[in-house]
Design a protein around this nucleic acid. Structure first.
Lengths: 321, 321
DNA sequence: ACTAATTACATAACCAGTTATGCAAATATA
DNA sequence: TATATTTGCATAACTGGTTATGTAATTAGT
C-alpha cells in the first residue's frame, strides 16, 4: 500500500483497521471450511468457557477485553446455536452464569485441528517476516497500558511548543507584564498582600538591585510568563524562587518548567546551594511542577505571606539542565 | 493481556481489533484537542484530496483501500462540514469529482502540527519497542497480497492431513479397492474400456507380474487411494503411471501427490529414466497434480485408450523426494 | 430495618465500516 | 442506430463492536 508510505504514522489506526478487516474476512471463510458451526466473533467467549467452565457475562467480558453488552449479545447468539446454556447455578439472581452445553464441549474437540492449522499458518507468516507482528502488538499493549497514545501526543505537543518559547532576562519593557501576570493569578485564588504590591510595583528595587533576577518567557516574541529569583538572607537557603506567573492563554507549552529551569540555573551559577519557595496546596499543577523541578516539601520557615501553606526547597548541586 | 498468551495465534484477529479500537478511541480525543474540526475517519479522504486536488469517489476509495460506499458517506459528511465541494468539473455526469473547499485547504495548514506530534509519538513508541509494528504491518500486507491467510491455512491443513496418510505396497486385500476406486471415476467421466477391465480385474497378472507395482494410500488404515506403476516396452519411456484414483471423501489431503511421489520413487529405484502417463484435459485438478509432480506435455505416443487426449512425461533424474 | 448505593445485566441507539442493489449515464456491439 | 454491457455512485441493510440507560437484585450504611 503505497498510500501509507505517503501518510506516515498518522494513519496507523487506518492501516491497522484495514489489516484487521482483511484477516477477519479470511477468518470467516476459514470457519466455514472447517464446518464447526462457530462464528469467528464467538471465539474469545468460546475459548474462556472451554478452558474455565462456568463464568458470568461480566467475568468473560473482563477476561477477553470486550464490553459487557458485546458478551451479552454473543452469549445470546451462542445460546440460540445450542452451544451455551445460561443461568446455571446462581443464588445471586442478577448473575447470568453461562457454560458450554455438551454440544459446545463436543465442538472444542472439533476445533482443535482448525486451531492448530491457523496457528501454524500464522507462525509461518511470522517466521517469514523480519518484524514480528504478534510481539509488536504485545509491546504496544504494554506501552499503551503505561501511557496512552493521547498522553504521548500531548507530550510531543509540549516539546514542540516549548521550542517556540524563549526565556530572556528581565528588561524595563517587561515591567507591566511582570505586574499584571502576577496580579492576575494572585487575585484569582487569593488576595493581594502588602509584600506583593511592593515587589510588583518596583521589581528593580526589590528584586534585581538586591542581587536577584527575573526571567521572562517569550512566545512569538510576546511575553507570556515571568519568574523571579530572589536572594535570601538565610543560612540554610541562598535563593528563593517566587512570582512565577504564566498567562492562561499560553498553558500547555511547558513554560513554567522552562522558567523554573532558568531560575535554578541562574541560582546555581551564582553559587547557590539550596533554593526555596512557598506556595499553596490549592495550586495543584504548580506543586506538581515544583516537584518535577526537584523541590521537596520542608517545614517551619518564616514567611510574610498569608496565602502560603506549603514550603519547598531544592538542592542545587543535583540540579542539571 | 494474559488472555492472548493462552489463546495463541488463533486470536490474532481479535487482538488486532482490540488494539485498533484502543488507538481509534485515543485518536478521537487527539482530534478534539487540536480543534481542527476533522473526524479521525475523514483523515484518509482528507489526505488524498490535500495531496492530489480533485478526485472521484471511486478513485479515492481505491487509493485509501476503503469501499466506494464508505467514501461516499465520508464525502457527504465532509461536505456537510464545509470541507469538501462535490460535482466539480465533470462532463461525465456519473462521476462525482470532489475537492477541498478553501476552508478545507485552510485546515490542511492547521493539521500540520497535529500531524507532526502524532508522528513523533508513534515514532517514539516504535523506537522503544524491539519489534517494529509499522514495518510488521507492511510485511503482513505484502505477504497477504501474495497469498491470503485462508490459502495459508488450507496449506497447513493439507500438510497435517497428509501426515495421517500412509502409502503402502499392494496386497491382495486391496484388490477390490483398486477396482472400485478406478471404476468410480472412469465411469463418472468416461466409459470403461476393454483395457480397463483387464487391468482392474487382474492387477497381479497385468501389472505386478509384468514388473510393475501398485501403491495404496491408507487414511485411518482405510484404503482411500491407489496408483499403479507399469513397466513399458518403449525405448523412450521405461515406466507408465496409471490407474491413479482417490476416493472423493478423501480429497484435500494431498493423497494424489503422495501416491505420485511413491510411484516415481519406485520407478527411479528400478532404474527408470523417463516416466509416462496419459490423461484427459477435462480432468483439470489431475493435470495440475501431474505438473506439480514434474510431468510435462508430450505428443505422438500410441495409446489404446479412447479417453486419452493428453500425454505427459517426467524426467526421473531430476525427481527428488 | 429501612433506605441508599452498587452490581449485573439487557436493551437501545450509535459508529465505522462492509456487501447488495438499483439507477442513470456512458460505452461497446450488433 | 438501437440495444446490451459496463461504469460510477447512492442508498439500504447488515456486522461487530461501542456507549448510554434502565431495572432488578444485592450489599452497605445509618
Amino acid at each position: 500500500m503505497d498510500f501509507f508510505s505517503r501518510t506516515g504514522k498518522m494513519a496507523l489506526g487506518s492501516r491497522l483497521r484495514l489489516l484487521t478487516a482483511r484477516l477477519t474476512d479470511d477468518a470467516a471463510t476459514i470457519y466455514d471450511v472447517y464446518e464447526i458451526g462457530l462464528k469467528p466473533k464467538w471465539f474469545p467467549v468460546f475459548f474462556v468457557l472451554s478452558e474455565e467452565g462456568e463464568k458470568t457475562i461480566t467475568e468473560i467480558a473482563g477476561e477477553i477485553g470486550h464490553s459487557q453488552p458485546s458478551v451479552s449479545k454473543i452469549v445470546r447468539e451462542m445460546t440460540a446455536a445450542g452451544l451455551i446454556s445460561e443461568n446455571n447455578d446462581t443464588e445471586d439472581k442478577r448473575r447470568n452464569v453461562v457454560a458450554l452445553t455438551p454440544e459446545g464441549i463436543e465442538a472444542t474437540a472439533r476445533i482443535k485441528e482448525q486451531y492448530s492449522d491457523v496457528n501454524a499458518a500464522v507462525e509461518d507468516m511470522i517466521a517469514s517476516s523480519r518484524h514480528n507482528l504478534w510481539e509488536a502488538i504485545e509491546e504496544w499493549e504494554y506501552l499503551l497500558d503505561r501511557k496512552s497514545l493521547y498522553q504521548r501526543v500531548e507530550e510531543q505537543r509540549k516539546i514542540r511548543e516549548s521550542k517556540k518559547v524563549r526565556i530572556v532576562p528581565y528588561a524595563e519593557q517587561y515591567r507591566a507584564t511582570f505586574k499584571t501576570l502576577n496580579e492576575e493569578w494572585i487575585s484569582t485564588y487569593f488576595e493581594m498582600e502588602e509584600a506583593d504590591y511592593k515587589a510588583l510595583h518596583d521589581p528593580e528595587g526589590y528584586i534585581i538591585d538586591k542581587g536577584g533576577s527575573i526571567f521572562v518567557a517569550l512566545y512569538d516574541n510576546e511575553p507570556v510568563g515571568v519568574c523571579a529569583l530572589i536572594r535570601m538572607q538565610d543560612p540554610a537557603y541562598d535563593f528563593e524562587m517566587a512570582k512565577m506567573a504564566v498567562s492562561p492563554v499560553a498553558r500547555g507549552k511547558n513554560i513554567g518548567f522552562l522558567l523554573g529551569q532558568a531560575v535554578m540555573r541562574k541560582a546555581k551559577e551564582l553559587g547557590g546551594k539550596q533554593i526555596y519557595l512557598e506556595s499553596n496546596t490549592v495550586l495543584k499543577p504548580a506543586i506538581g511542577l515544583y516537584r518535577k523541578l526537584g523541590f521537596r516539601k520542608i517545614a517551619g520557615h518564616f514567611t510574610p505571606y498569608k496565602r502560603c501553606n506549603i514550603q519547598m526547597a531544592a538542592d542545587l548541586h543535583t540540579f542539571a539542565d
